[in-house]
């Protein structure tokens, strides 16, 4: 904390490196694509007339869904590597300091802030503790769940002997009991991620206006600017 306290000025700090920002926007795009195509797979568009050989609509929708699924999986793998290779902020949402009392005080303070019970939020160079909690448990684990169940569903079509079936379907299907239950869970988690996205966008806009540091410009540039000169409250090394 001591080294970070030196940031007690409004001078901008470079927080989110290029790969982190790229991952963020790629995720935003892929989540929209995956949710729309996923919804259309579960509840297809109106039936097409004519010969089956003239159309390939479901095929294309499923192709887009599977491709986007591969991309989000590869992006997460790369991002995990970057959590290791990048700066300290790159691992913040992967390794929340759950054992530190100061972190939980921060979470509590942030909850009070959202309940209008404290006059001002704390000041952070990285994410605030509540955000870390939500991003770690809802987003990171949620997306990982979707990737694992998604590949398990894909492996059903790819068939036994395919690496998707060997690595995923072979143990995920028995875990969920049946393919139908697996489909339902995959579908439900889409809604969980949509709920996360709604809250995520709302608080980002709100914090941009009300918090003591920049939000929206930081998403684009990676630089954090501050609205006051008092010391920051980040966990040391987090």
């Amino acid at each position: 904390m001591t080294e970070l306290t030196s940031a007690a000025s409004t001078a901008p700090i470079y927080v989110y490196e290029k790969p982190v920002r790229l991952w963020h926007s790629l995720n935003a795009l892929l989540i929209v694509v995956l949710s729309v195509t996923g919804y259309l797979i579960a509840d297809p568009l109106a039936s097409l007339k004519g010969e089956a050989s003239e159309h390939f609509l479901m095929g294309y929708i499923r192709f887009v869904h599977f491709s986007a699924g591969y991309l989000i999986a590869i992006a997460l793998l790369f991002r995990l590597y970057w959590a290791y290779a990048g700066n300290e902020h790159a691992r913040q949402i992967f390794l929340p300091p759950l054992l530190k009392a100061h972190f939980w005080q921060g979470v509590f303070h942030e909850v009070l802030w959202y309940l209008f019970l404290v006059k001002e939020p704390r000041k952070y160079i990285g994410h605030n503790p509540l955000a870390i909690l939500a991003m770690h448990f809802v987003f990171v684990w949620g997306v990982l769940f979707m990737i694992v169940t998604g590949f398990a569903l894909y492996g059903e079509g790819a068939g036994q002997g395919s690496w998707q079936h060997t690595l995923f379907s072979s143990w995920v299907l028995p875990l969920f009991g049946s393919s139908q239950s697996l489909h339902s869970w995959h579908h439900l988690f889409m809604w969980l991620i949509i709920c996360f996205v709604l809250v995520h966008i709302y608080v980002a806009l709100r914090e941009d206006k009300l918090s003591r540091q920049s939000m929206l410009s930081t998403i684009v540039t990676g630089w954090r600017t501050f609205k006051d000169v008092r010391p920051v409250d980040d966990e040391s090394g987090a």
């Binding site: 579960a42 339902s184 809604w191 969980l192 949509i194 809250v199 709302y202 709100r206």
Partner: peptide
């Protein structure tokens, strides 16, 4: 079904956001 559950959850979250935003504005 999953859509009813998920859609309701999303609508509730949306309503919560709207209410929270309203309160924020009022507070300000």
């Amino acid at each position: 079904n999953a859509d009813a559950v998920g859609g309701t959850a999303a609508a509730l979250v949306g309503a919560g956001i709207a209410a929270h935003a309203g309160l924020t504005a009022l507070n300000r």
